[in-house]
Amino acid sequence: MIALIGLVIGVVAGLILEPSVPVVLQPYLPIAVVAALDALFGALRALLDGLFDERVFLVSFLSNIIVAALIVFIGDQLGVGSQLSTAVVVVLGIRIFSNVASIRRQLFRA
């Protein structure tokens, strides 16, 4: 619950203040958003399974974003940026789909 309140406050603050993202970070924003989506759906699934814990949620949120951005950054340095980012997007996409599938099963059977 605290985590949810904090998230909402953060979203509202982001919408009102509209900070600008430094140009260096601009290429990693799309992958960060997809990684955040994966963490969100994982949390929803845990919530519906009765296993939700806010620390795990926040840490997984943060580490997903950082690891995804790091992988794309390293890929850019090595020259395989687009391939690595494709791989990250594929994996995150599969995870999102499998989480959404269990959420659907929970919602429409339970």
């Binding site: 605290i2 985590a3 949810l4 309140i5 904090g6 998230l7 909402v8 406050i9 953060g10 979203v11 603050a13 982001g14 919408l15 203040l17 509209e18 900070p19 600008s20 993202v21 601009q26 924003l29 799309p30 960060a32 958003v33 955040a36 806010e54 620390r55 926040l58 949120f61 943060l62 974003i65």
Partner: peptide
């Protein structure tokens, strides 16, 4: 302590994601 850092971290993450989506 737990409540404090959960709140701070959640706010920062929320703000970051909103900024990312808005600027995209």
């Amino acid at each position: 302590v737990r409540v404090a850092w959960v709140l701070v971290l959640a706010t920062l993450l929320g703000a970051f994601i909103t900024t990312a989506v808005v600027s995209l």
